[in-house]
Amino acid sequence: MYRHLLVPIDATDLSVEVVGNAVALARSLGARITFFHVVADHAGSLRGEAELLRAAAPADYDYAVAGKARELLAKAEAAARAFGVPCEPLHAVGNQPAAAIIAAARARGCDLIFMASHGKRSRIGMALASETLAVLMNAGLPVLVSSTGERRAPARAIAVIRDEHRSLAAVLHAWMHLLAQARSAGTDPDVALMRSIVQYLRAFPLRLHHPKEEAFLFARLRERAPAVAIELDELARQHERDVVLVDELAGLVEALATASDDTERMDGRQALEQAVGRYATFLWEHMGREEGVILPAAQQHLLEEDWIGIDAAFAANGDPRLDTDLDREYKRLFSRIVNLSAP
């Protein structure tokens, strides 16, 4: 049976679903995953313009070449870790995705390519875009095309929720990695970066993700399925607890930043690392309860009209009670954290 899956991902919403399906398959098989992203060769496609961008705005150039890839791969890794599936990230630069996918699968010794297609459905009922078809024809190893099609409101809304969960998990892993590196090196972790992480946690999930869940998903589910009210009440209490825990983490970061001697710094690093570990466990259990209990209940009980409203709210933050600038803020912070924390 298959032991090593190559899973190509891109920046489209479809990849959220593909990653989830691939993780579920790998978990059932006891397999591992290499997540793979192909970055467009800007130097090859833009020639002199790429060199101008590199010279005028090196940070923008670096993000276009590698930064976005790190973000996408970090979220995919978070999805795999949540289910204990071993994984590794990989990206390559090129303008021939199919060839790059095949080369990566062979180089990594993968025995199955698991991918989606963005094409229209053919007469045999499969959505085969040109790149997917090229992989199928030339891979020389099994290729499994994940079923695709016109996604309805429930699927879109759930994909946004899961994607936001993966973003949060990726940030927590980045913080734990940062602290572990500092401990190994016997140095202080980057305080400015940790302050950015705390800012991210306050902007999202505390001020964006949780309020959307309670105002739209939880409220609708309470109306349609009173039997899950106890679970929803507990999740709401955990949302309140989240505020307290983030405040405690912020205090520990500042205590470390103002430590006056080596003993205080050592104690501060240890206390912070332990607190971040406890917070990560708390949030992973919280998100697991949402995805394992609440989302299945919502899929069972909510009506199409309910999902249309939830989908609109999660996709665009359209409710006037929510600050629409927060969505852009948390995405900017996520990018900074993941890219500065990369090895």
Rank of each mutant, 00 (worst) to 15 (best):
M1R: 07
H4Y: 05
H4E: 02
L5W: 00
S15Y: 06
V18A: 12
N21Y: 08
N21F: 07
V23W: 02
A24S: 06
F36V: 01
A40F: 09
G48P: 02
E51N: 09
A56S: 15
E71V: 14
E71A: 09
L72H: 09
E77G: 03
A79P: 01
A80C: 00
P97Q: 04
P97A: 01
A98S: 05
C110A: 02
I113C: 00
S117V: 01
A127E: 15
L128M: 08
A129Q: 06
T132N: 05
A134Q: 08
L136I: 11
L144H: 08
S146K: 07
G149C: 08
E150L: 15
R151Y: 11
I158C: 07
I161W: 00
D163A: 05
R166K: 03
W175K: 11
W175S: 13
M176A: 15
L179D: 03
A182R: 07
R183F: 05
S184T: 15
S184L: 12
D188C: 10
D190S: 01
V191L: 05
S196P: 10
I197A: 06
A203T: 15
P211D: 00
E214S: 12
F218N: 10
A229E: 12
E231F: 13
L235V: 09
L235G: 10
R237L: 14
Q238E: 11
V243G: 09
V243M: 11
E248Y: 06
A250W: 00
V253G: 08
D261Q: 04
M266D: 15
A271V: 05
A280C: 09
F282M: 06
F282W: 07
R289L: 10
G292L: 01
P296S: 03
A297M: 12
D306R: 00
P320C: 04
D323F: 03
E329V: 11
K331S: 07
N339W: 00
P343A: 06
